[in-house]
Every structure is written in C-alpha cells, then in structure tokens.
Design a protein around this nucleic acid. Structure first.
Lengths: 148, 148
DNA sequence: CTAAAAGGTTTAGTAACTAAACTAAAAACA
DNA sequence: TGTTTTTAGTTTAGTTACTAAACCTTTTAG
C-alpha cells in the first residue's frame, strides 16, 4: 500500500543526491569568464559576492561567503594581483577596507551571470509554464528548508 | 511584454545559484554517521559510492567519484585506518583490489541514507502530490541536462 | 581614559585533491 | 612464445582553499 510512497521517496532522495553531486562537480574546475583569465570556483564565487552595485567590506564578504576573515584576505590578495578587484580605505572607518570590482572584474561578473542565465533559460525551454512555476516554488522551499 | 519573462529567468537563476551555495555549505563540514565517528564530506561520499551491495574496484570508485586513482588510494587508506572499509585482493585479477564496507562502514552508510531520506520526506510533506511529481521530473531533467 | 570590541592581516597547519613517475600484472601482437 | 602495450593501483610532491590563533589598529563603551 504505502510501499509505493516509500519507494518514491527513496528514488526521489537519490535523484536529489545525484543532482547535488552533479552541481558540485560543475563548480569544481576553473573556467574563463569575460576578459579575466581562467578563474577558480572560489574566485568567481567571490566576484559574484562582491557584486557590481557598490563596494563591500571584507567582513561583509566573509559573512556572505561564510568563511573566516583570514580566508577573505587571502583570496582578495589573489584577485587584486589579477587586477579583478581593488581595495580602498573606508573614509568612514579607517580600520576597514572597501573591496570593489575593477572593469575587468565587472566583465567577469557579467560573463558569469550570462552563463547562469543561459543555463537556466535552456532548462526552462524544456518545461511548461506551469512546471516552471512549481519548480521555482520547490527550489525556494528547498532553500528555506536548507537555511533552517 | 517579455520583460516579465526576463525578470523571472533572472530571479529563477539566482534562486538556483542560491540553492547551489546552500548545498555546498551543507556538505562542507564533518558529521557523525552511525557507529562511525565524525566523517568528512568526502569520506561519507566515498562510503556512499562503495555501497552495501558488493565490493567495488578502486578504478570503478575513481570513476564514480570522478577523481584520479591517486585520490582514491589516499582516501581508502584513511577509511581503512578508521575501520570503515577493507581491501581484499581480486581473485580474478591480481592487479586489482576490491573495496567493501565493514559493518561499521555499513552502519555509516545506513545512517547517511536515513539523513537523506528524512530530509527528502520533510520536503515532500510541504508539497502536494502533483507538485512532488513535477518537482521530481524537473530534477531528472536538470540531471540529464547537467550530464550533457 | 582605559578596557573591550571590531576590522584586517599573518602564519602555520589541514583536507582534498592533481599530475607525474613508478611497479606489477594482464592483454594484445606478431 | 616472447615482447610490447595497456590497465590497476601506489607514491610523491605540489596546489587550492580553507581554519584557527596570534597579532596589529582603530573604534566604541564604561
């Protein structure tokens, strides 16, 4: 009777596990984005977290990426050497440092955004409007569920 | 007009990015499974890939986990030291080695399976039957899409 | 005005790899 | 059959992406 549900749950959770594995694998190797040379996953991830809007403090970045301040210092040094970000002193508080993207960094950000969008558009093209709606809802649920 | 679709695609791809980040974060720290002590993500992942059915060759394991043979040797040495796996010579081919789970390893496998199932059941409980069906379909599409 | 907190950096150490050189056994070939 | 090539696995040295802890500087609080 409810053996069917048990089996469904099992295969569904396995599929979800599969998906997680594939996503992880996707984000494992360096890729070239825009004018920037090949960037490691954590480099492009950091650029993504800085964003194009305005500068970010080191500590805010550590917060967004959920790593220690020391880790941020290290990766920002590397990105600065590659001319993808700049560090400017914060006029409002001389302890802190504002990190922002250089034009080259912005180009990498845009290129990465484009890759994501392309991927997602491709996926959407294979689904009906109703399916898309439900899928997005599920992803959001999954996210809130993971954040707990 | 189709500005709406553009915006939807953008937010959807951002949600998917969010999901990827959360999944990555989830699989970042060691956890305790069954009788085994705390296991790192790659340790439990390897145990998962070995499975309870029957032994696996080192090379098959490298294949499943998509890492080099050297990486497998290293992690299997560690898992063997922790008494979670055993290496037995392959009677059919003396070059190769069969890896299989010890009772302690099996207990970790089961515990991990249970965590996944619990997580997935929880998610399902928040969705209607129809939503579940569509969600699973989307996950499968996403998987095949990622494997391309 | 001093003590504590907050922002960053530095250093040493770890996990999880890779690439390349290596050994041994099995398969292919000629 | 004997030799070459391939396959299975190991070893080693080096890399990336961290963490934890000690350390400066400023800023904020009592």
């Amino acid at each position: 009777m409810d053996q069917k549900i048990v089996d469904q749950t099992k295969s569904g959770s396995q599929n979800l596990g599969q998906l997680m594995m594939l996503l992880q694998r996707l984000e494992k190797h360096p890729h070239t984005f825009g004018e920037a040379g090949p960037l490691t996953p954590s480099e492009i991830h950091t650029i993504d977290a800085i964003g194009v809007e305005k500068g970010v403090l080191m500590s805010e970045l550590a917060n967004r990426l959920q790593v220690t301040k020391g880790a941020i210092t290290q990766i920002i040094v590397r990105l600065e050497e590659k001319n993808l970000v700049v560090r400017t002193p914060n006029p409002a508080d001389s302890r802190s440092v504002i990190v922002s993207l250089t034009p080259k960094g912005i180009s990498a950000f845009r290129a990465h955004e484009e890759v994501r969008l392309h991927f997602y558009r491709e996926l959407r093209s294979q689904l009906t409007d109703q399916e898309i709606e439900i899928f997005e809802k599920c992803i959001e649920k999954l996210c809130t569920h993971l954040r707990k």
